[in-house]
Simulated scan of single mutants.
Amino acid sequence: MRVVNFGSLNIDYVYRVDHFVRPGETMSAQSLQVQCGGKGLNQSVALARAGVETWHAGLIGPEGRFLKETLDRAGVHTRFVEETAGSTGHAIIQVDSTGQNSILLHDGANGRLTPEFVTAVLDQFSAGDAVLLQNETSCAGDILREAARRGMRVAMNAAPANETLHGLPLETLSWLLVNEVEGAFLAGTEEPEAILDTLAERYPDTTVVLTLGEQGAAAARGSLRARVPARQTTVVDTTAAGDTFTGYFLRRALEGASLEEALTLAAAASALAVSRPGAADAVPGYTEVLAAL
């Protein structure tokens, strides 16, 4: 089983702050780190560290070559990571004293994926393979439609939540992964059980996964439900928590495991990720996660 991730590639500028900057406020940061990032990159690293054969498809600018090198070191295949004119995507991330984060994104090269690029990549895969994507690149609709036409199973982390999501054929998904904000945006309600009920009814052939931070995670497929608590840990940085969860959940889901088994592995991996600083660098390895369980 191979997974091709049409994923965002960002340079993260991470500022440690006492609190998030307020409107009109000028504040000195405690520190600055420049890191590899993008939900796509983080999720490819998580998949690879979870033991999944992972191919990343995306675009970078000249200053983003170290992102490709990071994927290579993590064991991700990077044949479909191409360099293009213009800037690499980047993110400005504030991490406060409690480990919570606030993120400002600039698409850069992530917004320059074309339908031709999507087709050329998917021509190298088959119905036995799976596709992963986020809402941080262009051509999400093309990816979903082309993958469905080829009979491929598709997982989407519907982040960030914006109007683009309403125009996508989400009913074609095998897995839809959202946090509370993204789930509320799609479902039109903020209560977790109502989010799951609404999305499961709207997409009856899709497994809907809802991450709930300190409240754990839940999933629904049709009338089937599963929920696991969050694992206790010291929170240092939540930046890659959801991305780690996505990669490890898919590891189990692709194996045909139960919803509860997939949620349990993903929650353990996510707890390890938030206990250390960084994004891709914080993603744990598979044996480490098994040991934590």
Rank of each mutant, 00 (worst) to 15 (best):
A130V: 07
A130K: 12
A130G: 00
L133F: 08
E136T: 10
C139D: 09
A140N: 15
G141A: 09
D142S: 08
I143M: 05
L144Y: 03
R145H: 14
E146G: 08
E146K: 13
G151N: 07
R153Q: 11
R153P: 00
M156A: 05
A158T: 01
A158M: 03
A159E: 05
A161D: 01
N162K: 03
T164K: 15
T164I: 15
G167Y: 00
L168R: 01
L170K: 01
T172W: 05
L173D: 01
S174I: 00
L176W: 00
L176M: 10
V178T: 03
V178H: 01
V178F: 03
E182S: 04
A184K: 02
F185S: 02
L186F: 00
L186D: 03
A187H: 02
G188L: 09
T189D: 05
E190A: 14
E191G: 08
P192M: 02
P192A: 02
E193D: 15
E193Q: 15
E193S: 14
A194F: 02
A194V: 06
L196G: 04
L196E: 04
L196A: 05
D197I: 06
T207F: 00
V208S: 04
V208L: 08
V209L: 12
V209R: 06
E214Y: 10
A217E: 09
A217P: 04
A218T: 05
A218R: 14
A219M: 06
A219C: 08
A220Y: 07
A220P: 05
R221I: 11
S223E: 14
L224Q: 14
L224H: 14
V228S: 07
P229A: 15
P229F: 12
A230K: 04
T234I: 13
V235Q: 04
V236W: 04
V236K: 11
D237Y: 01
T239G: 00
T239E: 06
A240S: 15
A241F: 13
A241R: 10
T244N: 10
G247P: 13
L254Y: 13
